[in-house]
Design a protein around this nucleic acid. Sequence first.
DNA 1: CCATTTGGTCACATCTCGGGTACAAGAATG
DNA 2: CATTCTTGTACCCGAGATGTGACCAAATGG
Lengths: 235, 235
Amino acid sequence: MTNPGSASRILVIEDDPAIMFGLKDNLEMAGYKVRTAIEGELGVQLARDERPDLIILDIMLPGLNGFEICRELREDGFDMPIVMLTALGQEADVVRGLNLGADDYLTKPFSINVLLARVRNFLRRYRQAELEIVSFGSMELNRTSKELLRDGRVIELTPKEFGLLDYLLQNCGRALTRDQILNAVWGSDLVVTQRSVDRCVTSLRSKIEEKPNQPKLLKTVQKIGYRFDDEERSR
Amino acid sequence: MTNPGSASRILVIEDDPAIMFGLKDNLEMAGYKVRTAIEGELGVQLARDERPDLIILDIMLPGLNGFEICRELREDGFDMPIVMLTALGQEADVVRGLNLGADDYLTKPFSINVLLARVRNFLRRYRQAELEIVSFGSMELNRTSKELLRDGRVIELTPKEFGLLDYLLQNCGRALTRDQILNAVWGSDLVVTQRSVDRCVTSLRSKIEEKPNQPKLLKTVQKIGYRFDDEERSR
DNA sequence: CCATTTGGTCACATCTCGGGTACAAGAATG
DNA sequence: CATTCTTGTACCCGAGATGTGACCAAATGG
């Protein structure tokens, strides 16, 4: 349970003491309550017992590794945001982690400010996840009328484009794998290529981006998938 | 049934007596008629029998919980606004509630003024559903005489066409699924094809649209259903 | 009992979406 | 810098969704 008015609680699972203490100090300085674990078993236990609001999780750990932790928690119905920490060049792992239910990832070494921004973003996310009208930039997506407006003008979207944009907005600031997008927007049953996501992204960009080949909103995350960024909101 | 001109009726389903009475008093002071239920079964019953204009619904309830109430009512075609009340830290639940058809939510403890503002807002949007005469473009629909006039001239509508137009006007600007339309206009018991909706839409268009194949009012929303747009009034 | 109207279904005509393919462009890797 | 993998994008076309005319059954009224 979260106490009204109290600081958000964050669990850091990381075995490298330098990184672990660095995170702890910075997060505490930013006003969060921090618990730490230096290996997997204890991490899972703390997550279960204390139900933190967010978890920062290293992939390479002694004992249970990050994937296993992630999967276990999700299987047990825990749905707090999980941000994974990964060494450079482990993109394949990142895809795996995201598909197992992680929400985002950071590649070491990372800027502490980027981390803090992501954390802030996640802790705020549930509140705006499913409102009737979501605005970003000069546009607003109306889930009731199924319309997208820019400066009050209708931008025609096909059903798939609308569904994709809707899903991306619900997960603003998160890196999403193509699998995640397919499951959410196409439905897990349907069998289509991952390239269909790319195609839909392209056509959506051509309608919402000023310069579709230099997207400001719907960014490509190489080897992973896509991320919707809203500069107004994410800072 | 709703009496034109009378105060809007609000149903409060909430088991905590302190909150329940607080809501009741405040809403009555603001001029609404209030019914209350302290558990789910009774709440659903009252909603069915009295068809309030708006429901304020706690999620945690003895008996049927808020989600179940919400789903049941929506499945039966009730479409009054539902505002959910949720304890802090249940934001994940909120998403679920909104998916089940709730329209808005408030996190306890909430300011009574915020609540009143939301309620007023919802009721304003739905009020025109109760008007005797609704006008759009150069036409007006008279619910008492069951006539549609354009520039003072009668346009002959069949009963089904009238019912459809009436329902669409009550939900002006909202994309409606064929199922919603069937439930509301045909009645949930009757078994007819979804295509009947299409057919009725076509014949209605031929009577109210300038160019029936390029509709300005009664728009198709691909893969969903239809939406009535009134450009004068909306935005 | 017949005439009329309503509205539901069917069948067919359109139209739209979006998947696949193919190739271009770009990014990573060594 | 060359190679290889990833992503962007134009194009075509089939499947499915929607529009629409025709027909018919049921209801209604005289």
